[in-house]
Design a protein around this nucleic acid. Structure first.
Lengths: 109, 109
DNA sequence: TCAAGGGTTCGATCATCGTCGTACAATCGA
DNA sequence: TCGATTGTACGACGATGATCGAACCCTTGA
């Protein structure tokens, strides 16, 4: 069976999550949409269940940006990869930020 | 005397302020610092009173990004230009966002 | 053992961005 | 009118970023 459940994926520690990095991660519409979908499901969500009409490699890129900035956490689960929002870490580090971002309209203009 | 007090500078209407644009504007450290300083003074502030060790043209660039994304408002006042945060518009559009951004540490790591 | 599903890596491409220096414009004070 | 102050416009340049296709890897199920 697989060892090392929280597989070798660079996740910053809570203290190392930087505001500019988070804001940059969230400033891209596809990534914002990913985050919204993760927020809605509230449960760890398979990477591939989020479809935005982008290629697989582009999705991998976006998930990496989100992960390395500290917005999401990912772990292997069998053949797929489970993704979830780092709500508690974000709330601890930047109180109110995630909620403010999530509560704004999806397609305002 | 000068006519047209709110001089010809593209400011988006409140309704047209977009979240990705705001997040992108705030994701750059120099711009974040500008916003913090504007928030501290709480009064319209001369462009040039904010010094970050960047060239004039770079500062102009950053002010434009902030203005066109709807984060700040600028108007001519004599020889200089007064800049202020669009607190009310931002709060109306994205409640809690500005406060969350401003209340986070300046140099955390 | 092998095939398939799910993700990653790599290189390429094209766009955007941050920064600068120089030149320019506009306003006010002397 | 002149000069000083203040900010803008214009390229330019290097860095970063978003996107893709193709090749590859890893796990599971047959």
């Amino acid at each position: 069976m697989g060892m090392d459940h929280t597989t070798k994926l660079h996740h910053p520690e809570r203290d190392q999550i930087e505001l500019p990095g988070v804001l940059h991660a969230l400033s891209d519409p596809p990534r914002l949409e990913i985050v919204r979908q993760l927020a809605e499901s509230e449960e760890p969500c398979a990477c591939g269940s989020i479809k935005l009409g982008l290629s697989k490699s582009t999705m991998t890129h976006h998930f990496r940006v989100l992960r390395e900035s500290g917005v999401i956490r990912q772990r292997r689960e069998g053949t797929s990869k489970l993704t979830e929002l780092r709500r508690e870490d974000l709330d601890a580090r930047f109180p109110g930020l995630l909620e403010a971002v999530l509560s704004s309209e999806t397609v305002p203009a």
